[in-house]
Design a protein around this nucleic acid. Structure first.
Lengths: 178, 178
DNA sequence: GCCTCGATGCGACAATTTGTCGCATTCCAA
DNA sequence: TTGGAATGCGACAAATTGTCGCATCGAGGC
């Protein structure tokens, strides 16, 4: 056992979990990973983690249920919702249920950690030195959605509400530095 | 003096205020209207309303300041943020500051009243099935970074590697629906 | 094989959006 | 009071996007 704070990571994307887990361990957390809701609940009860990073959509379940459960177990748990399917409605409910913050993918480990430590109602604490440029954010997002559509450019463009020609052109370019 | 609950309505759109005021009176509220932040603060202190409906953008000021003030006066005040410039970043802040709910214009009086009476977090809100459009993602990101810089447009533009003029223009526009 | 449908790559041109400058205010802290 | 920073906004050129069109390609279905 260590003095490292316990953190529960729940997300059904295995690859994403592996990457984020590594990054969080490097930042001093003792990380436990669950790939589904039940496993998440089980680990939560067993470990009573001080921190949690939870995907909004875990398979067909909602991560918000887990927020409620974690807060019931320990109201001091600091929870961040991290999702690729963000909406104002779910953000509002997440915060009402006691989540500390709500992040949209793509988000890097530094953002996650910063969000975990964010204080209540405090508009600005740790300002990130270099936020991703808009172009870079867009590039990563395009890649992510494209992948979710099996590389089908037409389908991705439709999902993104963007003209196929435009997506095509954007993909031709290099990702922006930074 | 009646037994009608007192409601403070703060929005810089005069026409909108008139319409909503009438509708709220019809629904049994004793409504006071303020068209700017200072007037809103003054009325808040004078009336200590049980309810408040506040625009996020009041002229050049932020309605979030008023949420904070109202909650400081009386933590039981039920406040709904109503805005045409909705973003996840501001929604998260509003709820953290104690707002009861967060609505996007256009919203009718029934929705507003329902929101005022809304109870705590519901883990069963519907989760979006589609990812955000690129435009919407950008809007959310701009709002987030802007908030991290305390609303300083110049600083946010620098951090984003984007021209101030461009950021200014993007912020003026309404967020894309979805 | 033949046909259809959706995906793709790409040219061309118009419609929009951005990048830049400039300038008048407004704000704020020294 | 004063200098520096932030802001709002007009104007015009530069760059990006939206649209249309068309030829090609691969997977099914018949």
């Amino acid at each position: 056992m260590s003095d490292h704070p316990r953190l529960l990571l729940v997300d059904d994307d295995e690859v994403f979990c592996q990457v984020l887990e590594r990054a969080l361990i490097k930042r001093g957390f003792e990380v436990s990973v669950a790939l589904n809701l039940n496993e998440g609940l089980r680990l939560a009860e067993k470990l009573t983690p001080e921190y949690a990073v939870i995907d909004l959509r875990i398979g067909h379940d909602s991560g918000l249920a887990l927020v409620k459960a974690l807060k019931a177990l320990d109201a001091n748990t600091r929870i961040v919702i991290l999702t690729g399917y963000a909406s104002i409605a779910t953000a509002v409910e997440a915060i009402k249920l006691g989540a500390t913050h709500y992040l949209t993918k793509p988000a890097d480990a530094d953002e996650v950690v910063a969000a975990l430590h964010k204080e209540d109602g405090d508009p600005n604490v740790a300002i990130k030195e270099r936020p991703l440029s808009v172009k870079r954010l867009e590039w990563e997002y395009l890649q992510k959605v494209l992948m979710e559509h099996g590389g089908n450019i037409s389908a991705a463009a439709r999902a993104l509400g963007m003209h196929r020609r435009t997506l095509q052109r954007k993909l031709d370019k290099r990702p922006v530095r930074e």
